[in-house]
Design a protein around this nucleic acid. Structure first.
Lengths: 224, 224
DNA sequence: CAGCGTTCTCAGCGGGCTCTCAGCGGGCGG
DNA sequence: CCGCCCGCTGAGAGCCCGCTGAGAACGCTG
């Protein structure tokens, strides 16, 4: 199991490395946020231990950045007891667990194993675009706190557009991937886009579902 | 899988060659920047391992040059620990990954495989000419931070000109590739060039879309 | 069988987009 | 200096694209 430890305090980093190697992990170190982000991107790790207070780029931002890139490597965050960051924020940003310094190796190792066991790369179920969220597993759509009811076809259409958010998707692509046909009248897409707009945009005065004349539709990544 | 290793230190180069061959790669060597650039251009490699400190032409410049020529072969950069170049600059210039010396074969090979897996030749989605940018997937055009709205025909015309930036493109070529006809009145091209100028040049006091009397049009690579 | 929800078709309409045309201006050659 | 030709532009006609309301077909449930 490959572990990346991102920690600027040399003594702490070295201690973690020794301790984890003794537990049978392959441990690499990064000593600042930028380096940590880079290693996490390219190093193919099973789990990342990420200090919050780091030079150049905070652990907070490293985590945010990774998740924004759809990188779902499990992250365990470390924080000093009275850090300026609230750990709850860390979890909101996509960390999977956290520990407050000081902590014991035993606890750290136990948490790491728990993360690994829980199944790595469990990408969050929900797709998001601004305050618009869609949960494929639960088949739920929300605009902010407000739940929105969709028919199966509407749901499939929105899901596909959200997976490709910010891209322009042509009607023929939608027919192929949502309707599973290609020689149908594209008007049916227009009709369903209209239905969706009346449910997720119009009631909220928003404009997430944009028409790109002559090209297709685009779901705005910021939710309109 | 063909790998080009550009490295001036003979011993290091030979060691890399042996190590990578043992992993099943076909390895070619270049011993300075100029030679490396030449090989990378013509050798049809799947990935390039590029040292930064090189005689004649730095790896830094080799990378920059290749990207300027729209060559998107994956590049992994190597640097001495305290090199004068910041690795972040390397990534800005279009390298895909980097390693700091000393490194282990295991890590190098893992990174190479990651690069290859990630899908080589992932050309950047956006076309650029100075501060003018066009993103085909998102169907977006920007002059600096300002977004510009284009109709489908205007967009297609600008996309074609940007793909051939700095070249003079004749009206008949434009009719063929943008309008998909050849016996139409070329005046329609003049009309649309006029539309484009009013959207991407005039409001910004720029002059990207240049007329070459008797020959056609040229889109200035620096955005005018 | 009735009632309901969902999907899809159809036709009309409104407007943006495309293209044509004619007139004008300026560069260039004679 | 004159005239021609190339390219630019404003106006406008027609068309095509996308939106919408209505309703038919279908399946599911009670």
């Amino acid at each position: 199991m490959r572990v990346l430890v991102v920690e600027d305090e040399r003594r702490m980093a070295a201690a973690l490395q020794r301790g984890l190697q003794a537990e049978g992990f392959a441990v690499d170190l990064a000593h600042d946020g930028e380096q940590g982000l880079h290693e996490a991107r390219h190093g193919d790790y099973d789990v990342v231990v990420l200090d919050i207070m780091l030079p150049k780029l905070s652990g907070y931002n490293v985590c945010k950045q990774l998740r924004a890139e759809e990188n779902w490597v499990p992250i365990l965050m470390l924080s000093a007891k009275d850090g300026e960051y609230d750990m709850a924020d860390g979890l909101d940003l996509g960390a999977d667990d956290y520990l407050t310094k000081p902590f014991s190796y035993v606890v750290l190792v136990a948490r790491l194993r728990a993360l690994l066991r829980r199944g790595a790369n469990r990408r969050p179920a929900v797709l998001e675009a601004g305050d618009l969220s869609l949960d494929p597993a639960r088949r739920r759509v929300q605009r902010g706190e407000q739940e929105v009811e969709l028919t199966p076809r509407e749901f499939a259409l929105l899901e596909y557009l959200m997976r490709r958010r910010d891209e322009v998707v042509s009607k023929s692509e939608l027919l192929e991937h949502v309707w599973d046909t290609f020689d149908t009248d594209p008007n049916v897409v227009e009709v369903y886009v209209g239905y969706l707009r009346r449910k997720i945009d119009a009631p909220f005065g928003r404009n997430a579902l944009q028409t790109v004349r002559g090209a297709g539709y685009r779901l705005a990544g910021d939710g309109g």
